[in-house]
């Protein structure tokens, strides 16, 4: 089903997804999904558990390449360039499209080493530069003040919320253009969650954010656009206020008003 954001409401499209299908072996997890993702906005993906939100998200930076048996078809473009084209290196795609996972996954290294991991593998070796990147990224992730005196301590000593912000800083350090977030606050307490939400509001100034969330309140609070998923299909997309106040599709309305899990 073709769903599009009304033209007058959207800025430039950063990513375009046309007729995406994702299969796990014989099981089709995403059915003919098409979506335009506007630049410098927050796009929320909502829907009941198991509806394919995360599967859809992971196709956007080619994480399914790593899953044996998973297959993605259709056309997915970033700035007009097909990210699944034969001559495109998935490593480059992931450099430009960063990802924050459901559970914080800091490396068992120091806070500093976590943040500069990306820049280092992409060839930055100057310690002074790395320190600058580290500070800038941690500031952007609203974590700098809490950790500036213990950058050499293990990242695993941080609280869950701090770890998640560290993982966001780690993504910011490689200066991606799009940030994918897979329920980034679902493992966190309410205070840590509100910090992450504030942060997402800041991030859209420089980045395009696509976020999967199981919380409709969260989607309503932080996103500009919302896409509703059901059973592997993209049912409806619109501005977040439209989706939550005047959904066009009956199924969206049923979900919004709490008739599905």
């Amino acid at each position: 089903m073709q769903v599009t954001v009304p033209t007058e409401k959207r800025s430039l499209d950063k990513m375009k997804i046309e007729d995406m299908n994702v299969y796990y072996g014989a099981f089709q997890a995403i059915k003919h999904g098409s979506l335009d993702v506007p630049e410098n906005k927050v796009m929320a993906l909502i829907g009941p558990s198991g509806c394919g939100k995360s599967t859809f998200l992971r196709a956007l930076n080619r994480m399914h390449d790593l899953t044996p048996g998973a297959r993605v078809t259709g056309k997915i473009t970033l700035d007009g360039q097909d990210i699944y084209a034969d001559d495109v290196d998935p490593v480059t795609v992931r450099h430009r499209i960063g990802m924050v996972f459901q559970r914080p996954n800091p490396f068992p290294k120091s806070i500093f080493e976590n943040v500069v991991y990306g820049p280092k593998i992409h060839g930055e070796n100057n310690q002074k530069k790395l320190m600058e990147i580290c500070e800038r990224s941690l500031r952007s992730a609203a974590l700098w003040d809490e950790v500036k005196d213990r950058l050499n301590r293990s990242a695993l000593d941080l609280s869950g919320g701090q770890q998640q912000r560290l993982c966001i800083a780690r993504v910011l350090a490689v200066e991606p253009e799009v940030i994918l977030m897979d329920e980034p606050a679902s493992a966190l307490d309410p205070i840590a969650t509100s910090k992450i939400e504030d942060l997402i509001g800041e991030l859209k100034r420089e980045y395009t954010v696509i976020i999967v969330t199981h919380s409709m309140q969260q989607a309503a609070r932080i996103s500009d656009f919302t896409t509703f998923f059901l059973l592997g299909e993209l049912i409806e997309v619109g501005t977040t206020s439209e989706i939550f106040t005047r959904p066009k599709d009956k199924r969206t309305e049923d979900y919004i008003t709490g008739r599905y899990g």
Binding site: M63, H95, N105, F107, I121, H122, V171
Partner: peptide, 23 residues
């Protein structure tokens, strides 16, 4: 999650093995 975290930052498989998984 560590494997995915590293690859999602644009690391190659080898960089992931050498810098994250082996340590």
């Amino acid at each position: 999650s560590l494997r995915e975290g590293s690859l999602a930052l644009g690391a190659t498989r080898w960089e992931t093995i050498w810098r994250v998984l082996l340590p």
